[in-house]
Amino acid sequence: MSTPTVIGTHVEVRDLVVRFGKRTALDGLDLTLDTGVHGLLGPNGAGKTTLMRLLATVAKPTSGTVSLLDHDLRDHRQLRRVRRRLGYLPQHFGYYPRFTVREFVEYFAWLKEVPADRVPTAVDRAIERVGLLDRADDKLKKLSGGMLRRAGIAQAIVNDPDILLFDEPTAGLDPEQRVEFRELLRAIGVDACVLVATHLVEDVTAACTDVTLVNGGRSVFRGTPEELAAAADDSVGGDSPIERGYTTVLRAARQG
């Protein structure tokens, strides 16, 4: 395993604005994240994916600054150093059907410039952590939807990233796999910054140390899951305290 390389802030986002033509996807968002598992919660179209793509250095903001691991992303050498320490599972996860799980994860280890002598163990470890070791030499086209997601997660964590971005990672996982996945999140979150974007509240409750709620491209809540649950107004519907909290905060944001 690589030694933790980060001191200071993992993710620092200031006054971020992203526009697609006339539509504003992010509207002056501020966000600071350190080690731990962070939930990014919000309704569909809130701007979660847009933010994730920015943090993954795939997209550029219209205005505002993104700083990752205290590096300036405009400098291409620093950008490259940051990318070596990134892991990203996009919402629409693409894969090559004829690659085996091992080949696929290894391909990404190569893309992330994991040192050659560490690649075989890193690949095995990543596959093991997502519980696919028995299918490691199967082609991806033979895997079920949930297994594919897990192969995607293995690809994201193969370089032991300092910043790990999961966009809707639990889509397609069965309940048991989701429990395992949350455990994995907690384990990784000990010394890395994990950001999980989701619209499923229960994922957040179980695994996250804190929650950021976005709506309409703005951050409308930041706190622990307990704090979100505490914000609940009993008049709104919902099956769990945190769901009620979520709805309450969202309504307040929409009105105000």
Partner: peptide
Amino acid sequence: GRERRRRTSDQIGSTSRPGWQP
């Protein structure tokens, strides 16, 4: 054209290795 066809451009775009190498 594979990255585009299989929609892996985002995943690969976030990695450090310069895009010309793959």
